[in-house]
Write a protein that binds this DNA or RNA. Structure first.
Lengths: 339, 339
DNA sequence: CTGTTAGCGCCTTCAT
DNA sequence: ATGAAGGCGCTAACAG
């Protein structure tokens, strides 16, 4: 069996309270006693049991992140930000990956309430009406990253301005001279109610309207999220009698599908077709993809920072931070062909 | 404050032992009492505190995975396998990502001994001599996946046959008719002592020798792991007066760099250059890359399965499983140009 | 079947 | 500065 604090105390010839004090850097121990205790600890190869410590202190030194499809590049980059920020702290990270609606519900309801973690970071999973009471009743801090709900104003939130981002991209393409602009994004039927693709589409529509450009449903391709699906949508769109001269994809992954489609159809980018993505995941720079940078790594980092701060100061009033975005113009966009 | 088992007991008018029995599906509760308890639980919105439960039962229902550079595609796919396998179980997953030697040492030494997790899966991090006593003294099961050490035969291991894999790829290229074969892999100076690239290179050398082909150091490009670095190595190699007609990359990521280099130099693949990768990460199929499939997802899955089995039956004797590989021939390999 | 009690390992007063 | 004792919330063994 592993040594306990008792064993250490005995071996050092002190009370177990003293060992605890040494463990917790209390100044109330003579340096002589401390040395003796430390020696006993070393000799016994003692490591404190963190479960017991957690129970006693009422903290677990663990935080949870609930994230959908954590293998997707954008999620990974956020996770990286989360993980890196946690390394220099005392906190361990439990990852709850969500790929089904059941798992989503279970995580959202139970994780914040099991006393298992000191705080929860929820990424890109908008709480549903029925989750609200559970989240509101949580006894640990919660931070919502890229996920909001009107009745949860009491939670810390980091919001992504997707509508505005969609508008800016569309404006950018119009300014380049494009009039026939396609949009490729996620099907809205997802049971997770992701908002990003939907909101970027809204921005697209807003700007079209403002610019007096017709909204054409054949220029909008919505399918399951993925490079392959995006490629298919794009091929269909590009085979239209009057194809778009630019395509705005709701994510870089989907933009890659569009690039694939262009290549398959022998279209040169950006000469024949302009392509814009969203997120600025790692490969985007490598591919020279024009895209809306989201500072994904930073958003994860800020999310945990906010969480840790709230854990340390639970009474602080909730904040709502708007995450920055930045249009990165690279080599996949240009004026439309002379026609 | 959150409700405790006491509150539930009181509200249901029973002893707390009974509540515990209900919680733990004990059959020794009358269905009537059970119903009353369940109602009290629902009314109080009670969720058991898992720290307390863990302390009492001596298990945490958590497993740890220690993995280097978890954002790399191959690691991600293993992690997916791990995560998916854990979902239907009661176990939560703590991820320890390793990106520095210090972190590596700290994780390898402490994680298995803090009573924080019920088992540890170590991926691709070969223990060093100084880690051995710590791992051997662990009080929880440990599974080594793609990481071995001669003195740790008492641990469960899943091994990847990298040398043989390197041999098979090289044989395959020779059989296609190639005589000038390059190798692109990781620099051996990594402080993590990763073995995969090194062993694949060994396999490459073995086969060259057996085939009576000269080993040419200018045909071996080792650099920091990454697509960009691989691309640079490949460009250098392909600009040689007598360039290789085939390149074997130690990973698919590096193979992608080789493909980039070929495109940049105007070489057609596989007409002018054959390229083989290793791992069969998700994009490999999409790119039509010939590669050595590693069943990454499965390896993660098997790793946890072995771990869970050992947790449930600690006395079972350690196993050593050899993971399968499979050469997947796609569209980046062909006979060399007629010369 | 059910209530009671003794820990699980540690932290934190409270005396001393 | 230090030892002793109570308690964190739960499980499991023990009476009944």
């Amino acid at each position: 069996m592993a040594a306990t604090i008792q064993d250490v105390a005995q071996r050092a010839g002190v009370g177990l309270g003293t060992v605890s004090r040494v463990l917790n850097q209390s100044p109330l121990v003579s340096s002589e006693t401390r040395a003796r205790v430390l020696r006993a600890i070393a000799e016994l190869n003692y490591v404190p049991n963190s479960t017991a410590r957690g129970l006693s202190r009422g903290r677990t030194n663990t935080i949870a992140v609930i994230v959908p499809f954590f293998t997707r590049p954008a999620m990974m980059e956020r996770l990286r930000g989360v993980e890196h920020t946690l390394v220099p702290t005392e906190y361990d990270l439990i990852v709850y990956n969500v790929e089904t609606p059941e798992r989503r519900d279970q995580c959202l309801r139970q994780v914040p309430r099991r006393g298992r973690v000191d705080g929860v970071l929820i990424i890109s999973l908008p709480p549903r009406e029925t989750d609200v009471p559970h989240l509101a009743a949580a006894n640990v801090p919660i931070v919502l990253l890229d996920a909001h709900h009107p009745s949860l104003k009491k939670l810390n939130r980091l919001v992504v301005e997707d509508i505005k981002g969609g508008e800016r991209i569309t404006e950018f393409l119009i300014r380049l001279g494009h009039r026939r602009i396609g949009f490729i994004g996620d099907a809205p039927e997802s049971p997770f109610h992701f908002t990003s693709s939907r909101d970027r589409l809204r921005g697209y529509r807003n700007t079209l309207q403002q610019a007096g450009l017709e909204y054409r449903s054949e220029y909008v391709g919505l399918a399951a999220h993925g490079r392959i699906q995006a490629r298919q949508s794009a091929e269909r769109m590009l085979r239209l009698p009057e194809p778009p001269t630019a395509i705005f994809a709701a994510s870089d992954t989907e933009a890659m599908g569009v690039l694939d489609a262009a290549r398959a159809l022998g279209l040169s980018v950006p000469r024949d077709l302009s392509v814009v993505g969203y997120d600025d995941i790692e490969v985007a720079e490598y591919l020279g993809l024009t895209t809306m940078r989201q500072f994904l790594y930073d958003s994860g980092k800020r999310g945990v920072e906010r969480l840790l701060r709230t854990i340390e100061n639970p009474s602080a009033k909730p904040t709502c931070e708007v995450l920055p975005t930045d249009l990165i113009v690279r080599q996949t966009t240009a004026a439309p062909p002379a026609a």
